[in-house]
Design a protein around this nucleic acid. Sequence first.
DNA 1: TAGGCCATCTGGTCCT
DNA 2: AGGACCAGATGGCCTA
Length: 144
Amino acid sequence: MKSRPSPSCSDFGSESSEPDSKAPEKFESATRRRMAANARERKRMQGLNTAFDRLRKVVPQWGQDKKLSKYETLQMALSYIVALNRILTDTRRPAAPHRQWLDLQLDVMQPESYSCLMRYEHPAGQEYVHSSFPYEFDGHHVHA
DNA sequence: TAGGCCATCTGGTCCT
DNA sequence: AGGACCAGATGGCCTA
């Protein structure tokens, strides 16, 4: 898959000249535990990455080509939740038109919360922002 | 080539 | 004691 930095745990077994008779066993046991811990940590991180992938799928994407980084994913999720929350609150008031709904989202997306995404900035500026929120509203896909 | 992002290893800390 | 979680270090890959 990706990078695999020099497996220093394999170096673990390379120095095996201990005078103490119990030392080799102790060393092997320590090596085994370390390797087991590494495996668990790998598995844990894979679980975390799976969770990030699932989050990426439900969070709005700014351009389909580029995968959001972990940090960007969290920022986007945060903004998304806040936006949805405001929508929920707002719909209790009389008729919020679609346009208002869109503006709402941009309102919530404070610059500091999406500045990390500015590399996707489009020449069309604000227009692009409006057209790049592919979530659904009221059964309609909002991607005008 | 520098900088960003990532995977992995590792040692420390906390919890069961 | 052993597992889960975390943060720092390290090194690889990719892009501007």
